[in-house]
Structures are given as C-alpha cells and as structure tokens.
C-alpha cells in the first residue's frame, strides 16, 4: 500500500508519499531529512528514536507513518534554535553527557518533555523519566547531572523573562 499523506513536523506540513509499512522514524530520516532521531533497537527498548508525538515522547520506530497523519510531531531539529543550542543541549555538552552521541537526541527529547511538565525534578524522577533511553557509554551519571543543570538554566531563563 502506498499513500500520499501530510505530516506535521516541527510546525511545518510536509506532503509525502509513503508506504504502509514505513515507520514514522524511517519517513522522518529518509524522506524529510530529519536525522536526529536514530534507529537503535527497532523494538521500542532503547529510546534513540524518541520524538514528541501529540505532546508526549514516544518511540517513532513503533509508529507507522500512516497513523501519524494529523498528529503534531516535534523532533530535536524543531527544539534546536537557529543560531545557538538549546539550554538542554548546552548542558549535555558542558557536563560531558555525550560520548558516542547516538542516544543523545532521544535523551534530550525525553528531558525536554520532563522539564516542561516538571521544571525541578528529583534524581528519582529523572531516572524514571529516562528509563526508556539507554546509553551504553556514559553510565548515566553525567546525563543525570546534565539534566539537573539544564533544569537550573531553564529556570534562570524563565526568571529573566518574568
């Protein structure tokens, strides 16, 4: 089955022709050129393919592109400002939370969603939030530190805006 659909990604409507058996992840990467989300396990275990789907983070490797028509999708590209990094991205760099980088986009998507609903998470809340995002390099300590640092910086940004 092949179908023309409209995908709303990062606030832009994209008209694409897709096959029924193509995952949202594959269409994002191969047809829209949005390569931040990665295919790790392909079975919803690793979180490397996380995107914000209808307001919550989800594994785009387990969503069919054809189901995603009419849903608001946000990828890491949509979170990243044009001329600088997002405070979460900068905190990951500053705290050494990136080694090979494969899990990082998914980690940042999950962090973005966590800090939106809970601007000051405890360590346990952070661990629970990233429990579906596997990292095989850092041992998570730096990632948790980066998330706490990002929370502090985002609060400061918010404070300045007030």
């Amino acid at each position: 089955m092949s179908k023309d659909i409209t995908l709303n990604v990062n606030g832009i409507d994209h008209h694409v022709n897709i096959q029924g058996n193509e995952t949202l992840l594959k269409v994002l990467r191969d047809k829209l050129g949005l390569t931040a989300a990665k295919e790790g396990c392909g079975a919803g275990e690793c979180g490397a393919c996380a995107v914000i789907y209808n307001g919550s983070p989800a594994s785009s490797c387990l969503i069919l592109a054809v189901e995603a028509e009419g849903v608001e999708i946000l990828t890491l590209e949509g979170i990243t400002p044009k001329d600088h990094l997002h405070p979460i991205q900068q905190a990951f760099i500053d705290k050494g939370a990136v080694q090979c980088g494969f899990c990082t986009p998914g980690m940042i998507i999950t962090t973005y969603s966590l800090l939106k609903s809970n601007p000051d998470p405890s360590e346990d809340e952070i661990k629970k939030a990233i429990s579906g995002n596997l990292c095989r390099c850092t041992g998570y300590v730096q990632i948790i530190e980066a998330i706490r640092e990002a929370a502090r910086r985002l609060k400061r940004v918010k404070g300045r805006r007030k």
Binding site: G44, P57, S59
Partner: peptide
C-alpha cells in the same frame, strides 16, 4: 509497565 516512551503509546 515498560518505559515512559512505551506507556505514552
């Protein structure tokens, strides 16, 4: 059940 990414779907 599963991870937050799974539970959201």
């Amino acid at each position: 059940l599963g991870s937050p990414l799974t539970r959201n779907r």
